[in-house]
Design a protein around this nucleic acid. Sequence first.
DNA 1: AGGTATAGTTACCTGAAGGTAACCAGTTTC
DNA 2: GAAACTGGTTACCTTCAGGTAACTATACCT
Lengths: 122, 122
Amino acid sequence: MKKQPVCNITTQCQARILAIKDAMEILSGKWKFHILGTLLLNEKMRFMDLLREVEGIAPKMLSKELQDMEMNQLITRTVINTKPITVEYALTAAGRTVEPLIDELASWGGAYRHALYNKKGR
Amino acid sequence: MKKQPVCNITTQCQARILAIKDAMEILSGKWKFHILGTLLLNEKMRFMDLLREVEGIAPKMLSKELQDMEMNQLITRTVINTKPITVEYALTAAGRTVEPLIDELASWGGAYRHALYNKKGR
DNA sequence: AGGTATAGTTACCTGAAGGTAACCAGTTTC
DNA sequence: GAAACTGGTTACCTTCAGGTAACTATACCT
C-alpha cells in the first residue's frame, strides 16, 4: 500500500500556509523592506529622496517597486503641482502594518548574527 | 551644488539594514518558511516525510534547502542506522527562533487578505 | 521478479529578477 | 547656455532560482 501523500492538512495549516504565501508574494524582492522601512521613518518622501536614501537602488527598480506597492495599497502616490513637478510617496494604513514584521525581521537578523558571532566568531 | 547622496545613515539604521539583509539572505527562497514551519510542528522528520508534507516541493529543492539550512545551523541532519537507512531532520535552538517571525508573517498575510476582502471584496 | 520503501543526485531548461546605461521633457540655478 | 534639479522610461544583458524528469543504490515484502 502506498503511503498517503499528506498527513498534515488541517484547515488551520492550509490557511496559515496561504497567509505566508500571500505575504511573501506581496513583500517579495530585494528592495521592498528597505523602501518601506525608509518610509516608516520619514512619512512623506519624493522619488529622488528615496533614490538617495535606499542605497544602491536604480531608478528603474525603485519605480517598479513603488508601482507594485501602490497596486497592493501599501503606499500612496501623490503628484504635487510645484515648479518642477514633484511626487510624494507615503505609507497607507495597511502599509504601516508592516512595521512589526520589519521589526521582527531586523531583530531576528540581529540576534542570528550575534549568536553566530558568539559560537563561531574566532 | 549637488544634493547629498544620503541623509539617513545613522549607525542604528545601518545596523538595522544589515540585519534585514542577513535575515532575507538566510531565509530566502520559496520553501524555507514552509519547511521550517513544518519542522516546528513535528520536531523530527525524515526526508520523505518532509517531501510529503511540504506540498509541491521537488526532492532536488528539498535537498538543497535542507543543506542550506544545515549550513546556517537552523537544522540538524542525523543519519539513523535502520534497515533501509533513514535520516532525521530537526530544528536547532537557532532554528526554533524563527517561530515568532513565521507567526508574524502569517498573521500579517492573514490580516492583509482580510483587510482587502473588506475593502475590495466584491 | 516486480513493486515499494529509503535518500537523494544529475542533467537540462526556462522565466523572472535585477543590474547598466542612455535618454526624455521641463525648469531653475550658476 | 551649461549644468543640475524634477520623475521617470526604454532597451539590453546576465544571472540564478526553480521546475521537470530520469536515474542511482540498497532492501524489504509478496
